[in-house]
Simulated assay, not measured.
Amino acid sequence: MKYLLILFLLVFTLGCKKSDIPTYHGQDGISFYTKYFSDPDSINYSFALQPTNKLRDTVLIPMRLVGKTSTDPRRIKLRAADSSTARANIDYILNEIDLPANQTSVNYPLIVLNSPEMKTKTLKLILEVDPGSELVAGAPGVAVDYSENLQQMTVNITSQLIKPNYWDNIEFVYGPFSVTRFQFMIRVTGLLNFDPNVIGSSEIFRLQVMLRNAIAAYELANGPLIDEFGNQVKF
């Protein structure tokens, strides 16, 4: 039986021609993408969380090729979807960029502008590939590594404190996000960024001890610290 199976596989292999191997056909495209359990399908950006007072900044948006590589660079042009609330050249700037030759991915540099309205609002920018782009909008789908192609990427822009993208990775240590909790953490530690990839995974636990001592001292002097949702802040 074993030899019969080997013979069958040999015949099957010899019977497969090079032309039988499926290849991609169609116009080459570009898509936004997210990594499995890593990158979000939307991005939160706050000028309030920057170490210096900035009037503009750059947010890198990951994009990748859907199709075949080329020995020539190819132009990428984005636009804002109609449902966006952010305003072109007031809250953001979209420049055309190239996907470099022989490359399959690129970080699109979105320029965000610190407009006065962001002091009280979070503005939504929904990015999509412009129909006039040399690389068209790539088809959505999930790759073998479980990363996902997206036809749109939402960027929330503000100068208020909002939930950072990494918070889900630290919620088990610091608790659910609230502006009150976040403000207390910033005031006690002097930090603006609690991302484990930035401060280190061991540091988040050391800071937890610091925050527990600080909240105990606060409660002794002022009573419980209640956040905007009516919940007591604990660490």
Rank of each mutant, 00 (worst) to 15 (best):
V129A: 02
A137V: 11
E96Q: 11
I93G: 00
A101G: 04
M153Q: 07
G138D: 03
G138L: 02
L150F: 06
V112A: 05
M118D: 06
E134V: 12
A143S: 15
A88G: 10
V142Q: 06
S84W: 01
A86M: 08
K121N: 12
Y92K: 04
M118R: 05
S83N: 15
S115K: 05
N114G: 05
I126N: 04
K119L: 15
K124I: 02
S105F: 09
G141L: 05
V142W: 00
I90E: 15
V112W: 00
L99W: 00
N114K: 02
T120Q: 14
A139I: 12
S105T: 05
I111H: 09
V129W: 02
I90L: 15
Q103A: 09
L110M: 10
L150S: 03
D145G: 09
L135Q: 03
Q151T: 12
Q151V: 07
V112K: 03
D91Y: 05
Y108N: 07
L127C: 03
S105K: 12
Q152I: 10
L123G: 00
Y146W: 13
N107E: 13
E134M: 08
A86I: 00
L125K: 00
T122D: 04
I97P: 03
I126F: 11
L110C: 05
N102Y: 09
P140C: 08
Y108P: 08
N89S: 14
E128C: 12
E117G: 12
G138T: 11
S83G: 08
I90M: 14
P100C: 07
T120E: 15
L123N: 11
G132F: 06
S133P: 09
L123R: 15
G141Q: 03
D130H: 15
D145Y: 10
Y146A: 12
E134W: 00
P140D: 06
P116F: 08
N102K: 13
A137H: 02
N107M: 10
I126A: 07
K119V: 07
Y146L: 15
L94F: 02
D98E: 14
I126S: 03
N107D: 14
N89F: 13
Q152E: 12
P116Q: 08
N107F: 12
N149P: 03
S83R: 11
N114T: 07
A139P: 04
I126Y: 08
L127P: 01
Q151C: 06
P100Q: 05
L113H: 10
L99M: 09
Y146V: 06
N114H: 09
Y92R: 01
P140S: 11
N107V: 00
E148A: 06
S83Y: 05
L127N: 02
D98W: 04
V142T: 13
T122V: 15
G138V: 07
P116C: 09
V106L: 09
D145C: 10
L113E: 10
V136F: 02
P131Y: 11
A101V: 06
S147Y: 02
E128G: 08
A143C: 10
A86Q: 05
L110A: 02
N95I: 13
I93Y: 11
L125R: 03
Y92G: 03
S84Q: 04
A88C: 10
M153C: 01
N107I: 01
N149H: 14
A143I: 05
Q152T: 15
A88P: 05
V142G: 00
V136M: 12
I90K: 14
I97H: 05
V106S: 07
L135V: 01
V136Y: 01
Y92M: 05
D91M: 03
I97D: 08
